[in-house]
Design a protein around this nucleic acid. Structure first.
Lengths: 213, 213
DNA sequence: TCTCCGGAACTGGACGGTACAGTACCCGTT
DNA sequence: AACGGGTACTGTACCGTCCAGTTCCGGAGA
């Protein structure tokens, strides 16, 4: 991550950023190398100096995005082991999860990878493992910790993490996948967060917590 | 649904089928009208006699697939109101749900629609409503019925249906979306079906059923 | 019921126009 | 002089159209 200020490095960065936005907005097939060069304020030749061909450029960009997942990892790890505030804490986690995964950029990235999973199988697979499964594994660790402290009843922590994510995300993510650029309201997110967390605790919380008011 | 055997109708059908496979396998941009005509054993001119242009052909094909959802609707409706066999019945429903939605063709169709949701917004939206939401609404009705009979504790039937689907499908569908053509084993499906159903009943079942063994 | 015929539908190929990935060559700055 | 960067080009693919010739369908007549 050394910041090189050489002209070459600056152009390299500009190309990466331009390519990212163009690919996200137009898809792999729809993005032209001319578009990318134009947006990067760079000649096409320069693009080809830095990246062998379109496929290489695409791969590089997609794989670069897995770095940004680290923030999500932290969010998932930092759950206070506070018996009284468990529902509150999980709901906060759910809110962060939801807002993070319904960012337009994240959704566009998802669509981009899914759309080209046939053409770039190893790309989709590695993104799934390094992005998706990593977060779920971390969440599973957190749940195991909470279970050890008697706050949850969890046999299979990974399955519990899958269920937590599924309860929260299935509807909003699907809705966003099928609808072009439509965004959800704040109220919708709140409903999903509280509803999903409540259901999760009903299933995996201690019996006392599972009782409904 | 009248079966017209006129030559025109036969060609029409051949074009529809050829276009479906080509679009599913190559995506919208990757599919060429020449490919479609060749596979349909029809001249390109004939294709354009039947369909104004590529977009029209694409829309028609995608929308035609919503008909096939009717079978899924039936599956969701036919849940016996049998107190003792509730978990067994729901697990059977879960299995059918999972096998139906992990069919390669269904997954390819999902990818195709998602990939082109930007270019064809109304197409993705209407498919979501007529395919996705219709099934969930029916499932919600079923859950309401079961709740009225005292078999489930459900405040918001639609949310419960969303949660049922999310518990079951989030992981397998995502895995399939990101991995090109990989298929799941029978054992995986069984695990997801039983695990998801158990969690659902823990959250929404009667207290007696919610207790774990 | 069988034959034949007019016209609609289809064929195959070619083509204009366009878009785009990748390359060859030239220029200006240092 | 050397080299990073830009312009202009090549070759290809594909959408949509056109045309001249052929095939098929359905109905009229024997």
């Amino acid at each position: 991550m050394a910041i090189m200020d050489s002209r070459s490095a600056r152009k390299h960065q500009a190309i990466l950023e331009a390519a990212t936005t163009v690919f996200l907005n137009k898809g792999y097939a729809g993005a032209s190398m001319d578009d990318i060069a134009r947006l990067a304020a760079v000649s096409k030749q320069t693009v080809y100096k830095h990246f062998a061909d379109k496929e290489k450029l695409f791969s590089e960009i997609i794989l670069a995005t897995t770095d940004r997942i680290d923030g999500m990892i932290d969010v998932v790890t930092d759950i206070p082991a506070d018996a009284d505030g468990l529902e509150e804490n999980l709901t906060r986690l759910a809110r962060r999860f939801l807002t993070a995964l319904t960012q337009p950029q994240v959704l566009q990235l998802r669509r981009l990878i899914i759309a080209n999973a046939d053409a770039f199988p190893e790309l989709g697979a590695s993104w799934y493992e390094q992005g998706f499964e990593r977060v779920l594994a971390t969440l599973a660790d957190t749940f195991r910790r909470l279970a050890d402290q008697g706050l949850l009843r969890v046999d299979d922590p990974l399955l519990a993490a899958d269920h937590f994510a599924g309860l929260l995300l299935w509807i909003p993510v699907n809705k966003a996948m099928f609808h072009g650029g439509a965004r959800h309201t704040e109220a919708d997110l709140e409903r999903w967060a509280t509803g999903g967390t409540r259901a999760f605790l009903a299933a995996y919380g201690r019996p006392a917590d599972a009782a409904r008011p």
